[in-house]
Amino acid sequence: MLNFIIRRVAVAIPTVLILILISFVLMHSAPGGPFTNERNLPEAVMKNIEAKYDLDKPAWQQFFIYLGNVAQGDFGPSFRYRDYTVNELIATSFPRSAYIGLWSFFFVVVIGISVGIWAALRQNKWQDYTVMTAAMTGVVFPNFVLAPLLVLIFAVELRWLPGGGWEGGQIEYIIMPIIAMATSYIAQVARITRGSMIETMHSPFIRTARAKGLPWRKIILKHALKPALIPVVSYLGPAFVGIITGSVIVDQVFSTGGIGQHFVNGAINRDYSLILGVTILVGVLTIIFNAIVDILYTYLDPRVRY
């Protein structure tokens, strides 16, 4: 086990380095820098600005300066939001995304898995068809369609909920973001759970459990659930990162000030440091959660050994 964790870390470090390198090269090969799209600055001023952000040095030198800073946990100043560092921007926006994300994830796990199991146990009955139709609908209504629709219905027409904003994460401000975020994930989880649950219920060890007269509840909770959840867990790992880092769309439509908003703005404004910071954050989270999923596997499926 320890061996396995060490190996995971050994793979993770070059991954993060490559990730930083690729994003760095991409951002720097872009035509136009972060300060070119405004009105032309006097040359002297431009030089000062470039010197301040180390943009006058050769690219490889910038890369190593940046790497050194990141190693110390410093993502540098934001190029666009002049008075903020990237660390500060992430510190204000990431908790918001994480807050919405954790609630969404909670609903995804609870609703998705229980609905999936319920449908599987009533396979090919009307309950199954209803749930699966609903799940299919959830899958084909992407969040960029769902989010504006929610605003149209609940904020514009019915006026039950505010159309956007954060306000300290009060419940009426986060309901719609959570729905928009969680729906398609719930649908996916329900579909995956149903599929693997049906497969598990047909396997010989379940037949044995039934033959020896175990109560239905016990068969499902003690025997069927664990193997049935393996594919679900492998889906949930990467999904968790996606949910926590905040869907770009949800942040954009509801202006929650989450991290996704910074990402898109950063990409449009060529805010090198901000974009790199967010990309690295997401990359590191992805790597960590992939590793956690692999570790969870050993618990769920004793056949997997490292």
Binding site: L19, L26, T286, N290
Partner: peptide
């Protein structure tokens, strides 16, 4: 597969 490709 550890890359956040959507971002890239």
């Amino acid at each position: 597969s550890a890359f956040p490709f959507m971002f890239l």
